[in-house]
Write a protein that binds this DNA or RNA. Structure first.
Lengths: 155, 155
DNA sequence: TGCGAATAGGTGTCACAACACGTATATTCC
DNA sequence: GGAATATACGTGTTGTGACACCTATTCGCA
């Protein structure tokens, strides 16, 4: 079904190129999947970006990370990581302390509550992924990941 | 290279599941590709979402589309299509006229300038897609599109 | 040692998106 | 035919992302 997206967007004309069709499919799929995740996270009071930060900080362990390290590990470009962390700090999910070794650095860490929240979210997030992508066979998931990784190489 | 994304995001632990890895790959790839497109469009003064609307309106032809039809054809969910169209109207790229048949409807159409802009953008956008995805073989692009279409079925 | 460049972080301002609510017109059902 | 509901659109408010610019601290090198 090569024209499924065209039907979905109610477009009449064929895509200009195979590359454009692929781009639109990537964008559309990401929008659909991240919307679903966003809706799932809403009752917990965090956005998908915020959840992503919490997961990054959990992965960093007790040493925490400075602002730019968090920013560089985000899935999406985020030029204003300061206020993103501000909001998480205001919500009591992270703390920030200025480093004594290099006073330019401000290390961000999960609070107990932040850690508890991200741990609590593991199961429902996994269930959401299972719900959205569980119908794909392991080989399909692997192929998809590989092709996406390849697609990212040029830009 | 199954762990390329993990290296890219500097994560230590393996992904929790194949589904999660695929989700992250979709999100990351969409972010990278749409960022590139956004940067390409910036000199022309339109965002990727605005460009998307212009393309939708061109596809609709001289009859134009009402607000909700535009909204439903967008790649990403857009609850506030009114002000998106407001901005395009303020930029002189679209016009809106209230329908006489059904006075609830407001039909949006491209202006001459809007049409000229979207036509002018065809070539550089195609070049950008070629630049970002040209290194994939036709069969790879097709497989990728098909798997993404399949992935979208559940949610 | 001292001066300029680079790095880390923050802020002011604006544009844009999200949500809830309000208004006008059309349709449906009694 | 008239009230209730649905549809299409707009608006007020709040929160979030984008960009440019600023300060403080450290580093590099003469």
């Amino acid at each position: 079904m090569p024209n499924d997206l065209r039907a979905e967007l109610q477009q009449r004309k064929a895509f200009a190129s195979q590359q454009q069709e692929t781009y639109l499919n990537v964008a559309r799929t990401a929008a659909v999947l991240s919307d679903a995740l966003e809706q799932m996270l809403k009752p917990y009071g965090v956005s998908a970006t915020q959840y992503n930060v919490l997961r990054i900080l959990r992965g960093a362990g007790p040493d925490g990370l400075c602002r730019n390290e968090v920013r560089d590990r985000l899935l999406t470009r985020m030029p204003d990581a300061t206020r993103l962390l501000d909001r998480l700090e205001a919500a009591g999910l992270v703390t920030r302390v200025r480093s004594t070794a290099d006073r330019r650095l401000v290390t961000t860490r999960l609070t107990t509550r932040g850690r508890a929240l991200v741990d609590e979210l593991d199961s429902p997030v996994a269930a959401e992924h299972e719900r959205c992508l569980g119908h794909l066979a392991p080989g399909q998931l692997r192929t998809l990941s590989e092709l996406l990784t390849l697609a990212r190489q040029a830009a």
